[in-house]
Each structure stands twice: as C-alpha cells, then as structure tokens.
Design a binder for these strands. Structure first.
Length: 450
RNA sequence: GCCCCCAUGGUCUAGCGGUUAUGACGCCGCCCUUUCAAGGCGGAGAUCGCGGGUUCGAGCCCCGCUGGGGGUACCA
C-alpha cells in the first residue's frame, strides 16, 4: 500500500488536513506500506519555501514522519507537459480559447449538457468528454456514485502557457508515485469524476479513493480561521500536546465499537480502518480537545512536562512550579497564568485584594499567619507549613479558606494558585514573608488614607 | 441553476430489523477540599430531521421532502 498526503502550500496546516494526513499515515503504518508526502503546487504564487517549510514543521510536530524526499510538482513540468501532449496527439484533448463567458453562453443554449468546444489550435487545453457513459466514483467511505459524462464540461487540464492544472497534476503524480489509496478531503469528491476521466484518457486504472468528511465550525460552516484555532500551528501555540491533538483528531469522524476514546499510536495503527470513518461532517470541539489534552498532560513525566513548558514559554527553571501545577492545568498555556507569579512577582489584581483582604479581620488573620510562618524553623517543608498554619486555624477558630485565601492573594496577587503549602514552600521563606509584608503594608496604608 | 453527498441529545460517537437507543465532551447537583482544577458519585438532555411505505416488528431497508455541506474557474 502506498498513500500520500498532498496539501496545497498555504503555510498553515489545517486541522482537517492534519486529520487526513494522520489517516494516511495510520494506513501506511498499519499495513507496512509507505506514507509519501507531496506538495501540490500548481499554484506557483503560494508555493514559497517558507509556506512549504511551515507545513513540514507542523507535520513533524505531530510526529507524522514520511518516506522519501517529497516531490515538488514545479520540478516536474516536463512530465505533465508530456502527458498533455500525448492527449493532444491522440485527439483526446484540444486547444480552445473559450472561457467562462463562452461556457455560460453554451449552457444558455444547451441547458445542462456539458460544454463542448472546437479545436482552435491555441488557448487552454481541454479534455474531450463524450456525451456517452459516466464516471463512477468508488469510494471506500461513501460507496459508489455516478456522474454522467453528458453533464460534464470539457475540462481544462492545462493553461494556455502549458502549465498543468490541479486535476491533471494530481492524477499524473499519483500515478507516477504508484499511489494505491487516495485519502483526501471530501471537497474533492465531485471532482474525482473529472480525475477519473483524465485517468481513462491516459489509459490508466484509478487508485482506491476515500474522501473523509470536512470539519465544520460550531456554526455548521466549513472550519476556517475565523473559528479560532483552525490550524495545527495555532493549536501548538495554545499549548496543546501533539499526542493529544492526534488522539482527538483521529476520533473526529471515526470511532470503534467500544466507543473507546483514548488510543496509543499502536492501538490506532492496529484498529484504524477507513471503513469506519463517518460519512458526515464533524464539528471541531475545542473543549473536548482540552479535556483529552488535560488527561495526556497529567500523565507526562515531570522532566518531560518541564521541557515542554520551557519550550513554550522561553523561560527556564520551571521544574518546581511545573510539579505543583501539573494537576491543575489542561494545556501548556494554562501554566503561566497559574504559576507566572513565582517568577514575575504577584499579579496586580485589585478586585481580588479588595475582596479577600478588604476587611480588618482578614488582615488580622494574615498578620497571625505571617507570625506563624515566620516562626517556622528550617526545614521549610510542606508538612512544617501545614502544621504551622493548622495552629493558626485552631487559635483563631477561622475556616481554612479565611486564612489561606489572604495568604494566597498576598503571594500570587490573585485568587488562584497551586496548593498553598506547595506555593509557600516553592517561593521560599524570605520571598514568601516579604510578599506578605508588602501586602500588609500596602493594605494598612490604604486603610489609613481611607 | 445544475451535479454529488450527508442527516442518532448542544457537540463527537456506538448501533448494523426486535435495546429501558451506547459512551464521551459540555451543563447541573452532591462528595472530596486550602483557591482553582483534578478525581468520585448522581442528574437533566434524543418522539434517532420530516412524511410515506416494506415488515409481525424499523435509528437500521425503499421512496419523497426538508435542512446542511461540497462541486460546478486557463483555483487548489
């Protein structure tokens, strides 16, 4: 089995594209076949080295490795020209200057019958489509459908300047690469009939097709940039893990009988089958991705998590904070808002200060807590801290949150943080006490002036 | 306009002629609890898009309709 992923070089790897890439990759791995990559660049404008590199990069991030060097169409102009010339020579194609206006005029006269042009010896190259017969698309996912030739316009396969159009190019490239299974987005479904026509003219047999349904946004429309994270690059920036993205994306439009939701790559390779891919479009649900991501994130080894957090934030020395934040975050991006105060100082959350520290009672408890903490002899451990604060609770008769929240706001600046004992410990005695003192000062002068 | 496809709770999904219609996300409640999460338990939420058939029996089969999507370029 030989499969390929052939994105157009737009720079961003769309989530839908990532899914078809994954399906192709799983197919190849599961069958011991080959996964090939090809950039479909019949549109020269978009095919910049930067765009191409970005796609490769996204694929690498997902750990979808491919065989061989990718083939660039632009380097293969002769091959396409050769096929076009052969078709011309055999009278299966002709040159015509007819454009959209002529086609429109034709349909006004001939109704639905496909456009049939004259050989003018110049202009774009059109394939002759007979009025007899039909192209039957056989699709592993969606079954069989028939497209009447009579309704099909003679299709353009090369521009007047001789450069190939997409339909010609894919067909030739797939054939030359020996592709056996073409797995791609359903937006190519209707066009498959055209490609079948080209293949037939070339006298070649079609590969097996599988068109995977498109991904939609919450509004039911095709998923695009305006739906938020629509590309794997964006997902990466938002702190999602590649393995979680893979798991989620595999599940979008595919499920097994057990309704299993977490898969290792090995399980996916073994169990994935095109036959079970859903026929209907799925809606990308970032909340579910978050959930899956959280599960993967919590299972990460601490060193691994730390490395990934450091890569994303560009900071170092995150291990301690990572350790106490791991169970509270769902994405890597959740880390900094939760634990950034360790490194950048307390947040300036006025509302939190007023709500938690706005009363004399709260300041009093914080003062007592400060004293208890100052009395903690080394070692400054979670246990020692808990014991000390436990005593404050007993002495004041206050509820835990009435004592812990003021401390939290003093240390973090806001109302959320990792566990309070862990936070105190990680900050260290001096830093913790000085942050508490700073808040105490600030609040009392505020009270004096008020 | 024409061609093709699709249709199970808000979302993803199981189902393959006989089920109290599966599981998950999300939502709500309770438990746990030092905040927020995580975790545990429970709950609400689907006349299986609608209407006709076929059948003793239809989410599953057939027809029509509606809705949605895709295609219809000298775009990919």
């Amino acid at each position: 089995m030989r499969v390929r992923f052939a994105p157009s070089p737009t720079g961003a790897l769309h989530i839908g594209g990532a899914r078809t890439a994954l399906y192709n990759w799983l197919l190849a791995r599961g069958s011991g076949g080959r996964f090939l990559l090809r950039i479909e660049d019949t549109d020269r404008e978009r095919s910049t080295p930067e765009n191409v590199e970005q796609i490769f990069d996204a694929l690498r991030w997902l750990e979808l490795d491919w065989d061989e060097e990718p083939i660039f169409q632009s380097a293969r102009g002769e091959r396409h020209a050769e096929v076009v010339q052969a078709l011309l020579d055999q009278g299966l194609a002709y040159r015509s200057t007819a454009g959209q206006d002529e086609i429109k005029a034709w349909h006004e006269q001939h109704g639905n019958r496909g456009f049939r042009g004259e050989d003018e010896g110049e202009g774009a190259v059109r394939l002759r489509v007979g009025d007899e017969g039909a192209a039957v698309v056989r699709d592993v996912i969606r079954g069989e459908s028939t497209f009447e030739n009579a309704l099909q316009d003679d299709l353009v396969i090369a521009r007047a300047d001789g450069t190939p159009l997409y339909h010609l190019a894919v067909v030739v490239d797939d054939h030359d690469m020996g592709i056996t299974h073409v797995v791609r987005g359903a937006d190519h479904y209707s066009n498959t009939a055209k490609q079948l026509l080209i293949l037939a003219a070339m006298g070649e047999e079609p590969p097996l097709y599988a068109h995977v349904p498109l991904l939609h946004g919450p509004d039911g429309k095709k998923l695009s940039k305006r739906h938020g994270a629509a590309s794997v690059q964006e997902l990466r920036e938002r702190g999602y893990l590649p393995e979680a993205v893979r798991n989620y994306v595999a599940l979008l439009g595919w499920g097994n009988e057990e309704s299993q939701e977490f898969f290792t790559t090995e399980e996916l390779e073994r169990e994935f089958s095109l036959e079970r891919v859903s026929k209907s479009p799925a809606v990308f649900d970032e909340q579910k991705l978050r959930h899956i991501n959280g599960r993967y994130l919590r299972e990460l080894e601490l060193d691994d998590l730390t490395r990934r957090l450091e890569d994303l934030t560009g900071r170092e020395g995150l291990r301690g904070a990572a350790e106490i934040s791991q169970e509270k975050i769902s994405t890597l991006a959740d880390f900094w808002p939760l634990a950034g105060f360790f490194f950048d100082g307390p947040l300036d959350d006025k509302a939190a200060r007023e709500k938690i520290l706005g009363t004399p009672e709260a300041l009093d408890r914080l003062t007592k807590a400060r004293e208890a903490l100052a009395a903690v002899d080394e070692p400054w451990t979670d246990e020692a801290l808990e014991t000390a604060l436990q005593r404050v609770l007993e002495d004041t008769g206050a509820k835990p949150r009435q004592v812990y929240q003021p401390i939290r706001v003093a240390l973090a600046g806001g109302t959320v943080s990792p566990g309070i004992f862990e936070t105190l410990r990680l900050l260290g005695r001096d830093e913790a006490l000085s942050r508490i003192d700073a808040v105490l000062n600030r609040m009392s002068t505020a009270a004096d002036t008020a």
